[in-house]
């Protein structure tokens, strides 16, 4: 985030909140209602969404509500999230025992300058990490981890 958009980032947060809030407010009209409950289960979310809309409008009007500047959002951080979601999608199919060491190896390698030595120690870290959580959770806590293609 740089330039004017960065300086007035609260305004953009306000816009996002207002749009998301409007969508959620619309959703509350699909909640079930009962004659015996005068308040209803949509009441509380609507109160919250109304308050959020008020604060969002305040942010849009002000543009920026405090002196401190936002820190930049980096692609590396989003890559961690993306990698995590890919892991989630593949976990049930591939299984913990194949996917986790592979994911940890790639993650560890990605965090450092590439070299043969780095690859070897990242492989060790991946195996150690997988082994540690396997020992703690599967042996220690009786958690059955997804087997995937290993069956």
């Amino acid at each position: 985030m740089g330039g004017g958009a960065g300086v007035l980032f609260d305004r953009w947060v306000g816009v996002v909140l207002l749009v998301a809030g409007a969508a959620l407010f619309g959703e509350t009209f699909f909640f079930r209602t009962f004659d015996w409950d005068p308040v209803g289960m949509a009441f509380w979310p609507r109160v919250l969404l109304g308050m959020m809309a008020a604060v969002a409008i305040w942010h849009i009007v002000k543009g920026r509500v405090a002196a401190d500047a936002a820190e930049p959002l980096t692609s590396r951080a989003f890559a961690v999230f993306g990698g995590g979601m890919v892991y989630v999608l593949l976990l049930d199919i591939v299984g913990f025992f194949i996917l986790t060491p592979a994911a940890l190896f790639l993650y560890s390698l990605w965090l450092r300058p590439l070299s043969a030595r780095a690859a070897a120690s990242s492989a060790l870290a991946a195996l150690f990490g997988t082994g540690l959580v396997y020992a703690i959770f599967e042996y220690g806590l009786d958690v059955i981890l997804p087997r995937g293609i290993l069956g």
């Binding site: 995590g84 979601m85 892991y87 989630v88 976990l91 049930d92 913990f96 986790t100 940890l104 993650y107 560890s108 390698l109 965090l111 450092r112 780095a118 120690s121 990242s122 870290a125 991946a126 150690f128 990490g129 997988t130 540690l132 959580v133 703690i136 959770f137 806590l141 958690v143 059955i144 981890l145 997804p146």
Partner: peptide, 28 residues
Amino acid sequence: PRYWLQPVLIAMCVVGVFSLNNRIFDIG
């Protein structure tokens, strides 16, 4: 080094969250 510590920590997070309900959805 962080490149050793972080993979272990994230593995703990993933499996720890999964172990609560045995649901991959929770990891997401």
